[in-house]
């Protein structure tokens, strides 16, 4: 048996898994426990033109947001960090006018910690701002249509 192409393919697979696992880590912060509303009417996420902001909770006090993560970049949850995040979002919208922003926040986070990020996302001029929640169980409720109406 010729082992060379097998080893080639195995290395390719390893590279593929390394790349995809990094991407998923960036898109989905595992520290965040998403809200899980009952009888949810939330829609399936649209993967195209998607920019995800992860609001990483403080491990000691989950009501507080410790940092914000946008792609590979992390911003402090202070005024300077929020300003930098706002600039980054503006740049993202300038690069792609169809961009939509998904906000992932922990269920325990205080509204006062999330609202400035909502505001920044809205002010960026993005086409849409979506709030991410955990998917409900099948048959848990009606779903929104494309226009956002139930």
């Amino acid at each position: 048996m010729n082992l060379t192409p097998m080893i080639d393919m195995t290395f390719l697979l390893i590279v593929f898994f390394i790349l995809t696992s990094q991407i998923s880590n960036v898109e989905m912060a595992e520290e965040i426990e998403l809200p899980e509303p009952k009888h949810s009417v939330a829609a399936e996420p649209d993967e195209e033109h998607r920019v995800v902001i992860n609001l990483i909770p403080d491990l000691l006090d989950k009501r507080r947001v410790a940092s914000m993560r946008l792609g590979f970049r992390t911003f402090n949850a202070d005024a300077a960090g929020r300003a930098a995040l706002r600039a980054e979002l503006l740049a993202a919208v300038q690069r792609d006018a169809e961009v939509k922003i998904d906000i992932r926040a922990d269920r325990q986070a205080s509204y006062s910690e999330v609202y400035p990020i909502l505001n920044a996302a809205s002010a960026s001029g993005a086409r849409r701002v979506d709030l991410v929640v955990a998917a409900s169980l099948p048959g848990g409720g009606a779903r929104l249509n494309e226009e956002g109406g139930p």
Partner: peptide, 21 residues
């Protein structure tokens, strides 16, 4: 919501409004 309202409650309220069409 008040400043200290948990995000899950805000989402529940939003869901109730959208669910009521």
């Amino acid at each position: 919501p008040t400043a200290g309202t948990r995000w899950e409650h805000t989402i529940e309220a939003l869901n109730a409004c959208l669910r009521a069409q």
